[in-house]
């Protein structure tokens, strides 16, 4: 590896670093908002009333079936057609929030369903209201069961955030691309961008593994 490559990387790094921060911001915001909405949809799509359940399941299936890239384009280029205009940053957050909500609602729903029915019966027999049973018994355990899968999904969404470069958002890939366009050194800059993605995803995956092992020991 030549010293000039090291020098170039050193020169590009501040811009890529800024891009990485943008990637992390859109990912973080989308995850927080998406998890909350996802929990809401998980509860709605396991509701007793079909009138509530079926529309929720339909929306979740649409959200899960839609490629993230299409979701991004739809929000950024499509919604202005009905008078709703977003900048690239909020458009990315809205689109990735919707994708996150749709996926995590299924993950959380599976977690909620894994809570043994006997515990719900006990809650009923004790006279706890349905809301209390969900709040104190089902949701805390369901989320704990879902946590490793949710975190795995969070890593995925971080990777998917690279698609926002197509909206011109100056996130990590967007920055790398514009450096590449200016220097024609696509290979060098994309390798560095890739390394920065890995610097986040590899430790994160390792953390998820550890958490999964700890939780299974705790619950088992």
């Amino acid at each position: 590896m030549s010293t000039s490559l090291i020098n170039d990387w050193g020169e590009w790094l501040p811009r890529l670093w800024d891009g990485l921060l943008v990637s992390l911001q859109v990912t973080g915001l989308s995850l927080v908002l998406g998890f909350v909405i996802g929990l809401g949809f998980a509860l709605l799509s396991s509701a007793g009333s079909g009138l509530v359940r079926w529309p929720a399941i339909l929306l979740v299936e649409i959200g899960r079936g839609m490629p993230a890239l299409v979701m991004l384009q739809l929000v950024y280029f499509g919604l202005p057609g009905v008078g709703i205009t977003f900048d690239a940053f909020p458009a990315t957050v809205v689109a990735l929030t919707l994708t996150t909500a749709a996926y995590t609602s299924e993950i959380i729903r599976a977690g909620l369903r894994a809570v043994p029915a006997g515990e719900l019966e006990a809650a009923d027999a004790l006279g706890l209201s349905h809301v209390d049973a969900m709040r104190f018994v089902v949701i805390p355990q369901g989320l704990r069961i879902a946590l490793p899968t949710l975190m795995g999904f969070a890593i995925l969404i971080f990777q998917v955030s690279a698609l926002a470069y197509s909206l011109g958002l100056p996130e990590l890939l967007g920055q790398a691309y514009s450096i590449g366009a200016a220097t024609f050194r696509y290979l060098d800059v994309l390798v560095l961008a890739g390394l920065l993605y890995l610097a986040i995803t590899i430790p994160a995956s390792w953390l998820v593994d550890r958490l999964e092992r700890r939780l299974s020991k705790h619950l088992g």
């Binding site: 043994p116 006990a122 027999a125 006279g127 104190f136 805390p140 355990q141």
Partner: peptide, 28 residues
């Protein structure tokens, strides 16, 4: 007015023994 004990205990495993007994008293 009716308490029930199940074959499979059905305690809440994520709560301590004390919380298992106290929580229903507080809520109900």
């Amino acid at each position: 007015k009716v308490g029930m004990v199940f074959q499979s205990f059905n305690l809440f495993p994520h709560l301590t023994v004390l919380r298992n007994i106290s929580l229903p008293q507080e809520r109900v």
